[in-house]
Computed example of a mutant assay.
Amino acid sequence: MTEATDAPFGGLTLVIDSATEACSVALFDGDRLVAGEFRMLGRGHAEALVPMIAALPDRGRAPRIVAALGPGSFTGVRVGLAAARALALAWGSEIAGYSTLAMVAAIARDQAGNVPVGVAMTGGHGEWFIEGFAGDGNVARPLVSLRPEAAAASAIETVIAGTQAEALVTARGSGTALPVWPDARAFPLLPAAALTSDTRPLYGRAPDARLPGGLPAPGN
């Protein structure tokens, strides 16, 4: 990922994370949490997200907006990014993004003591999104989407975090599972290198829809 400019940031930051079944928003002044909310929605992010932002002080208005890029739910990723881009345009705000798995790893490292963390999150078609992070939070193993048995075989870290952490540790037969969900309120735990000014969605796997001839459909 390309590191976002002007980090660390001393002003107000609105953080939006709706890439998974969880949905969360947070408003920070520097690294101080001003207000935030976390909900386990499953579905309905499009209906819930804007009211959650509007409930923040000054309706969440901030000169910087940061959104989760995925991977996760195709719909959830797009809902969060659409809201971030619309607000950035309306307010003239800077916009940046971060990987959902990087956020999960940051929360897990905070709980486990800055050790290497493998992240296993629910993907599509029965696969899991897998990525490894070093003790400093930087990527140690690249993001891939694998069947559960292959994911368990590839995970080398003792600590595994995410929605499929318990299943992976059970399948592997060893390790510590931290069933962590991404949470916008944990934004200050992210390393600076996790932020990127490239806010294209991070889907983590090839698109399902294809045009005649095998080309990916646009927008997937």
Rank of each mutant, 00 (worst) to 15 (best):
Pro57Val: 09
Met40Ala: 13
Arg210Tyr: 02
Leu195His: 14
Gly137Leu: 04
Met1Arg: 15
Gly162Ile: 01
Ala171Tyr: 04
Thr163Val: 00
Ile53Phe: 03
Gly132Phe: 09
Gly76Ser: 05
Glu3Ser: 14
Gly124Cys: 01
Arg172Leu: 05
Gly36Pro: 11
Ala155His: 03
Phe9Thr: 05
Leu33Arg: 03
Trp128Lys: 09
Ser145Ile: 05
Trp128Gly: 00
Arg85Lys: 15
Glu3Ile: 15
Pro212His: 09
Leu143Arg: 05
Pro116Tyr: 11
Pro201Tyr: 01
Leu215Thr: 06
Gly80Met: 08
Pro8Met: 08
Pro182Phe: 00
Thr13Leu: 09
Pro207Ser: 01
Leu56Phe: 07
Asp17Gln: 10
Asp6Pro: 05
Gly44Gln: 02
Arg32Ser: 11
Arg43Ser: 10
Pro207Lys: 02
Ala106Ile: 00
Val66Asp: 03
Pro148Glu: 06
Pro71Gly: 03
Gly204Arg: 13
Glu157Ser: 06
Ala82Asn: 06
Val50Cys: 02
Gly42His: 12
Ala217Val: 04
Ala46Leu: 02
Pro218Asp: 01
Gly213Tyr: 06
Gly123Lys: 04
Thr163Arg: 01
Pro182Val: 02
Ala67Val: 12
Leu33Gln: 02
Ile65Asn: 09
Gly132Met: 07
Phe133Val: 12
Asn220Gln: 06
Pro212Cys: 09
Leu87His: 07
Ser154Tyr: 05
Asp136Pro: 01
Ala171Asp: 10
Ala7Asp: 02
Asn114Cys: 12
Ser99Pro: 15
Gly36Glu: 03
Pro51Glu: 10
Gly92Thr: 12
Arg61Lys: 15
Gly70Leu: 03
Trp128Tyr: 14
Phe133Cys: 09
Arg61Phe: 10
Leu89Thr: 15
Thr163Asp: 02
Ala106Leu: 01
Gly137Ile: 01
Thr100Gln: 11
Arg39Trp: 04
Gly72Thr: 02
Leu81Tyr: 06
Asn138Glu: 15
Val180Cys: 11
Asn114Leu: 06
Ala88Tyr: 04
Gly80Thr: 05
Ala67Arg: 02
Thr196Arg: 14
Leu56Asn: 05
Glu127Val: 03
Ala106Asn: 00
Cys23Arg: 08
Val117Cys: 14
Ala108Tyr: 08
Arg210Met: 13
Leu202Phe: 06
Glu94Arg: 12
Gly214Arg: 09
Glu47Gln: 15
Gly97Tyr: 08
Thr170Ile: 08
Ala171Gly: 04
Gly124Tyr: 10
Met103Tyr: 04
Leu33Thr: 03
Ala88Arg: 00
Gly36Tyr: 10
Tyr203Ile: 00
Pro179Val: 04
Val139Tyr: 07
Arg39Leu: 14
Ala140Asp: 10
